[in-house]
């Protein structure tokens, strides 16, 4: 998916991002769109939630992204007996220094892979989710900043699975995007079966970006231009979700900012330094569906219905 245009192409940054994508495609087959969305999410400095049934490669994707971005990486397997301290870290008395010394938890990594986040109790969930929001952790009265960059890539099972604690909408709002992987297509599945073990492939991957390059990419995302027409379009979408009877409540202003940021990252991936409506349309499903709740009790929103409700009804001039 490229465009007709080359005048405003941003070849250097696009090729940087392209490099990540090419490497990722080799490991994760046939999921080009999902890979691009995930990369756009991280370029927009957003946290990513991957939701799907077990075994479709959620963990692989998270692991791979950390690896390719050349970031320090920690994995937390969320279980029902996980304690907040297991996430944040604990202070232990150090006899030699005769004082408490803080042992930082896995959250003090640049990429935190929170695996099966909805298996943990709400208490453990909120320890992580608060760190995501503040980008710092307060332990025993002392505020410790988290590393920069800091990403949380969380995976969760669909809500109807047994033994899960669903994340409330207010917490879901902290994830910029939620993507679903879905089963691979037949050919890819066969290739997967025939091919090498994914884990060892990831271990062999070299980082595609340096830390500086990633920071530069993130800064370029911020600099992408959003014309007044685009702002108006995003606003119309927000207004529609607020007035529509199908949703319990509309999108928050934070969601609006998130949509714009994600669209900018997507524009950059499309080698453009400005946002066009198609960018919004491309990222919108991943950005809004998890933030909306159906208005009738127990009603579920499926992605296509939400998108047809929103995208079909907002006209473009």
């Amino acid at each position: 998916m490229t465009n007709f245009l080359s005048r405003h192409g941003m070849n250097s940054s696009a090729s940087l991002a392209e490099r990540v994508l090419v490497a990722a495609r080799a490991v994760i087959l046939g999921k080009d769109r999902e890979l691009r969305l995930a990369l756009a999410c991280l370029m927009a400095r957003g946290h990513l939630l991957i939701e799907d049934v077990p075994g479709v490669g959620k963990t692989t994707l998270a692991h791979l992204l950390a690896r390719l971005l050349g970031l320090e990486y920690a994995r937390i397997q969320f279980t029902s007996d996980l304690l907040p301290a297991d996430v944040i870290g604990v202070s232990v008395y150090d006899r030699a220094a005769e004082s408490f010394r803080f042992h930082p938890g896995p959250v003090f990594s640049q990429v935190v892979l929170a695996d099966e986040i909805n298996r943990a109790t709400p208490k453990a969930q909120s320890a992580l989710l608060e760190a995501m929001e503040e980008r710092q952790v307060t332990v025993e009265g002392e505020t410790r900043p988290l590393p920069e960059p800091f990403f949380v890539i969380a995976t969760q099972n669909p809500l109807f699975q047994v033994g899960t604690f669903p994340l409330p909408e207010s917490q879901l709002d902290r994830f910029l995007m939620r993507i679903r992987l879905g089963y691979p297509a037949a050919e890819q599945e066969k290739a997967l079966l025939a091919g090498e073990d994914r884990r060892s492939m990831i271990a062999r991957q070299q980082p595609a970006l340096t830390g500086e390059q990633l920071t530069a990419l993130q800064q370029q995302v911020v600099a992408v231009h959003a014309a007044p027409a685009i702002i108006e379009y995003v606003h119309a979408i927000l207004a529609l979700t607020r007035s529509s009877e199908r949703f319990l409540h509309g999108l928050s202003p934070r969601a609006g900012l998130g949509i714009l940021r994600a669209a900018k990252a997507w524009a950059l991936l499309e080698e453009r330094d400005y946002v066009i409506p198609e960018d919004i349309q491309a990222i919108l499903p991943s950005c809004v569906v998890h933030r909306l709740a159906a208005s009738e009790y127990g009603g579920r929103l499926d992605e296509d219905a939400v998108m047809s409700e929103i995208l079909d009804r907002v006209a473009l001039a």
Binding site: L240, S243, R313, V314, A315
Partner: peptide, 8 residues
Amino acid sequence: IPGGDCGT
């Protein structure tokens, strides 16, 4: 049809 909008 809300103002400035369309319906199908």
